[in-house]
Design a binder for these strands. Structure first.
Lengths: 137, 137
DNA sequence: TTATTATTTTAGATTAATTCTAAATTTTAA
DNA sequence: TTAAAATTTAGAATTAATCTAAAATAATAA
């Protein structure tokens, strides 16, 4: 089974019709794990051939977030970034070089929280500071 | 020492000139612990007498965040909220009633993170879901 | 097939939070 | 008092995201 077929299957499993545009966006996120913005996704997909509009990028990202096959990162208030990885993990943003790092978290990270009666849909840990690389320069 | 004097002292301690507008914003945040937006702050301060402009609200909030006497909450990507409490704690947003709850976290909450060489400026834990109240209705 | 209905995509307008600009005001220092 | 520095300001500009209503495409029924 090739990549496109695999993506189609994932989308269908999540009750999402696998249109060309949706496949392209999901494929781009799988191949670009640097937490791209809607604009970056739009520009890259259209680089060779214009096959998608801005509105569709936004519509599709929203749909994917709702269906929980990607997650939305709002560590800056300026624009959202998107992550193919929906497993709970943290993000560190270097305020010097703007790199967004993934942080592995222990599986019991949220266990100490007392949220009885609360239904958790998604969780984000955001840390800002200066990364190791920038610190040593 | 009255409240205004206390606020002046806090601002001066953090190398912030205590102008009338700055005092009013800080005073509002101390008295309104519901994580207000810039717009809410602006409207409330000007309710009786117009003493502050939108630009100053934004300038001042940015200054306060830089000086670390308040913190900025970006749990939605639509608008920032502000918190007088800079001690690390979590936030839970109910997606039904939009209430923003504070979450107490153990002091060692971030200890398991392996961030050697990284300088942490601020940390946020954001959780979205349905709150107890909405769940039981 | 053909017609009908539902879904998806789209260009461009709109919205709204935030930032910018450059001038006015206030404060501080000399 | 005067000059310099800091603060505030109105309104314009920016920009990510949403909205609108039409067009294109796909799915379904006859």
């Amino acid at each position: 089974m090739n990549k496109t077929e695999q993506i189609k299957k994932i989308l269908l499993n999540n009750k999402i019709q696998p249109s060309l545009q949706r496949i392209k966006i999901y494929e781009f996120l799988l191949g670009n794990k640097t937490h791209p913005t809607a604009d970056i996704i739009y520009n890259n997909i259209n680089k060779e051939l214009a096959i998608i509009s801005k509105a569709t990028v936004y519509n599709t990202l929203k749909l994917f977030v709702e269906k929980n096959i990607i997650s939305e990162i709002t560590i800056d208030n300026t624009e959202s970034r998107y992550d193919y990885n929906t497993k709970f993990h943290g993000h560190f943003k270097c305020e010097k070089c703007n790199t967004l790092y993934d942080l592995d978290l222990k599986s019991d990270f949220l266990n100490s929280l007392n949220l009885n009666g609360f239904k958790i849909n998604n969780s984000h840990l955001y840390i800002k500071g200066i990364c190791k690389k920038c610190n040593s320069n």
